[in-house]
């Protein structure tokens, strides 16, 4: 086992670049998955089967197939249809879409956990449907699901390296590029491996603190 600290030093500037891209993917991907997941969850409550059935099938399909192949699909098929986006945009949309099929389940559980009395009170006060959702149901439902959503953010963090497959230079992409150029695989790959463990550990500590604050 040979470990070369100078290779680590050489890799560090690339590491920070990669970390920045990873965090970008994570933040924008999370926002997409939170918004889209809520849209799916609300559509699943629509009164018509013509809405719930297609939404159910599509989200089930996305949830049960590999993100990697979905990214290939978006990356290679969309240009054929005349839609060209950068690799980063494609990747962020792909990962956000994939995780929205998980967050929709979280929202569903949160909405179902709102006591029936709240619905009845909204009816008794003659609130329109829009106000019932925006002022009564969702504020309570979303507060409940924040910790579960946070867990999916951490899960998403660990899926961001997949975006290297469509040429996005996030942490793993940077590490691989550096490894190929300098023929030093051990140091960059170990550095990012340790970085992932540290980041997800810190994130889960932060999440636990947040959970405690929400309970009180």
């Amino acid at each position: 086992m040979k470990w070369d600290w100078s290779a680590v030093a050489d890799f560090m500037p690339h590491f920070w670049d990669g970390l920045l891209v990873t965090l970008q993917i994570l933040v924008i991907g999370s926002v997409i998955s939170f918004v889209l997941g809520l849209v799916w969850a609300l559509l699943m409550r629509a009164p018509s089967r013509w809405v719930t059935w297609p939404v159910g099938v599509i989200t089930e399909f996305i949830r049960n197939t590999p993100l990697l192949v979905q990214l290939f699909f978006l990356f290679y098929v969309m240009p054929e249809w005349g839609l060209t986006f950068s690799a980063l945009t494609t990747g962020v949309v792909g990962i956000g879409l994939h995780y929205s099929t998980y967050t929709m389940q979280v929202y569903r559980a949160g909405i179902e956990a709102v006591p029936v009395g709240q619905w009845e009170a909204a009816t008794a006060l003659n609130l329109p449907l829009r106000r019932t959702w925006s002022a009564v149901i969702l504020p309570q439902a979303i507060r409940r699901v924040v910790p579960a959503l946070g867990n999916y953010v951490i899960a998403m963090l660990k899926d961001t390296p997949i975006l290297m497959a469509i040429t996005v230079l996030e942490m793993l992409g940077e590490a691989q590029l550096f490894a190929r150029e300098h023929f030093q695989f051990t140091e960059p790959l170990t550095v990012i491996g340790v970085a992932f463990i540290v980041i997800s550990y810190l994130a889960s500590l932060a999440l636990r603190a947040l959970e405690r604050r929400l309970v009180h």
Partner: peptide
């Protein structure tokens, strides 16, 4: 559990493919 859940599966695969043969 902490170590193996903290890291990403893809990085694990890369590590076993590239680092294990070179370093060990």
């Amino acid at each position: 559990t902490t170590v193996f859940r903290g890291t990403s599966a893809l990085i694990m695969i890369f590590w076993i493919y590239f680092v294990l043969p070179l370093s060990f």
